[in-house]
């Protein structure tokens, strides 16, 4: 039995303890009345007239954050902390994924779902792991719904796909209302309070990285991640598009994204592309890397490599 698995157990125990603490907090908190009128009405009006994120003053953002926290309280009965974490100076994030390491466990997927408060039980998953045929990189031969007893399956390799944080993002160009844009740290974010839900960005994305809230997101209260960020994992409304944002709530504080932390194989390498001594720069300089659909001119900041 390898240590690799004992580490996973450790993580699941931690997960369990975290969930238990969350449940405790939820029970301790007083049940908020979801009544119409009063602060609910004020919040609805406030949301309706809320400006674009990039045009709001600090006070307006503080008001918006108050509404977000109150809405989470009403909807999930959880006290979340929503911050407006700014991008760091001289940082542009990049990701490198070692496909000779990836075993197709999908631990990254489930960690992402929990970390980013994704709708459970619908199809809201930012990462999709493709089971590929050895000897081929044709995505049309990939299997998305593989579910064998154990992975890796002989004759297959695994290719996780998520938002590539393109440097020339076609989704940003497509949005008719500028509800999505690239931040100075290279992350393509969405203002969930500005998006009109036309889904043109989903059409424009060549990586199937954008996802739509077809219904009101449903998350058990005890599973809510209370550490949230405005342009990140705060609870989203129905009818808007969302996507991987490299865990802004973590990475802008210097922490690793949840998928990197969850990966038991060490296949995921995250870091600052502007730092010549960073791990990711070493990978780009020393490994033979490729990017998905590079020929489309999207300039992804997500690389794949092999040992």
């Amino acid at each position: 039995m390898s240590n690799l698995q004992s580490e996973t157990i450790d993580q699941s125990r931690r997960r369990f303890l975290g969930a238990a603490a969350g449940a405790g907090a939820a029970v301790a908190g007083t049940a908020a009345a979801p009544a119409w009128g009063g602060s609910t009405l004020m919040d609805t009006m406030g949301s309706f007239f809320q400006n674009h994120y990039q045009r709001m003053s600090d006070e307006e953002i503080a008001d918006a954050i108050g509404r977000i926290e109150r809405r989470a309280k009403r909807r999930y009965d959880v006290d979340i902390i929503c911050r407006d974490q700014p991008p760091q100076e001289d940082v542009v994030f990049g990701y490198a994924l070692n496909i000779s390491k990836c075993q197709g466990y999908r631990d990254c997927v489930s960690a992402c779902v929990r970390e980013n408060n994704l709708d459970r039980g619908s199809q809201m998953e930012y990462i999709r792991v493709l089971e590929m045929e050895e000897g081929s990189r044709n995505l049309e031969h990939s299997e998305h719904y593989y579910d064998p007893d154990t992975v890796p399956v002989e004759g297959k390799y695994y290719l996780p796909v998520q938002c590539m944080q393109c440097d020339n993002p076609p989704c940003v160009k497509a949005c008719p209302v500028e509800a999505t844009w690239m931040e100075p740290d290279g992350i393509v974010v969405v203002d969930y309070d500005w998006c009109i839900g036309c889904r043109y960005c989903m059409t424009a994305c060549p990586y199937q990285a954008r996802h739509f809230n077809w219904r009101e997101p449903q998350i058990p209260s005890e599973d809510i991640n209370r550490n949230t960020n405005y342009l990140g994992n705060r609870p989203r409304p129905r009818g808007v598009v969302e996507k991987c944002h490299f865990c802004t709530q973590r990475t802008r504080e210097g922490r690793q994204p949840a998928c990197q932390e969850a990966c038991p194989t060490g296949a995921r390498i995250f870091g600052n592309l502007l730092d010549p001594s960073s791990e990711i720069r070493y990978v780009l300089a020393n490994k033979k890397v490729f990017r998905l659909k590079e020929e489309l001119g999207t300039e992804p900041k997500f690389w794949y490599f092999t040992d």
Binding site: A179, C198, N213, R238, G239
Partner: peptide, 24 residues
Amino acid sequence: LGRPDRILHMLPVIGRFNFPQSML
């Protein structure tokens, strides 16, 4: 539209109209 209540976001000045970038 997923959010027809936000259609005013398309208007110039009040909203933010991504012209001439967006084909929509």
